[in-house]
Amino acid sequence: MSQQQVYKQITENREETDNNVLVQVDHMKKYFPIKGGILKRTVGHVKAVDDVSLTIHKGETLGVVGESGSGKSTLGRVILRLLEPTEGKILFEDNDISHLGNRKLRDYRKNMQIVFQDPYASLNSKMSVGELVEEPLLVNTSMSKSERKEKAVDLIEKVGLRASDRTKYPHEFSGGQRQRISIARALALNPKFIICDEPVSALDVSIQAQVLNLMADLQDEFDLTYLFIAHDLSVVKHISDRVAVMYLGRIAEIAPKKSLYDNPLHPYTQALLSSVPSTDVKNRREKIKLSGDLPSPANPPSGCVFRTRCPRAHDRCSVERPELTNMGDGHYVACHLYDNTDT
């Protein structure tokens, strides 16, 4: 079944049965304490992720976009339990993994992998490509040496490198090739779910396209589910089925790709989309300009966190926090422009 078909089926079934859910995040919070004074007491919290709920369906790609400081990377790391959640639940195939101990977590980790942004920092420079790809197999399986080697060669070829590259070291490769190595390593344990944290943003456009095509091919072949975190709206649009827009630790809008890009509802999404420089020299989009910078997540504005930069902010925005509201067909938006129930 092609990806589109899977996705179509998912959307059809979503309302009645939700057994297609692979990952569910429920009211997740991740606060980092700020220590101050001589006694290093906690004087405040950076609310990196502040009450985020979302579901990721089997076989889909959920894109997460946001600017720096929006909490998108922290969200990815908390889902993998690389960071401990402050509050909230993470369900993987209906099992609550938010409080699992290390040993049990290890079994789940085989199913969940991550590919990082910087392929220079995430690969151990003292290990050969073969060793890097075999390492997860060595740690997590009882495969023999020759089986591991066979599997590694297979993976290395799958990601578009040569079997002879097995004995080379990361420094002998370009950025794009290193990202291929990271992907081979992530695939080693046949995971169901891969978090891709800005996997192509350090790459040149021609190489970025190669890696994105590879990721799409692998998704089809291995039936993978992706959480694709990036700041580049065009890249996210290209690879995702659904997209979540984050701002200051919260989800501003989440919708199927087409709906989000064709009909963005949240003023932040609208501004974000209009700010992307376009190569279409004939039809210039009008830009919505946002003033100012992202407020500090240690001291977010009251009510709606976007109100300080929002061109359409009104009184209610400073007192009441907007909740995600269903606008139909899986399009959710957290904005008081769309939830006028009591006015």
Binding site: V205, S206, I207, A209, Q210, L212, N213, A216, D232, L233, S234, V235, K237, H238, I239, Y261, L273, V276, S278, T279, D280
Partner: peptide, 13 residues
């Protein structure tokens, strides 16, 4: 280049 305006199945790398 992935585009915001067009839908592309595959990028021409």
């Amino acid at each position: 280049l992935p585009s915001l305006e067009k839908d592309m199945k595959r990028l021409g790398a």
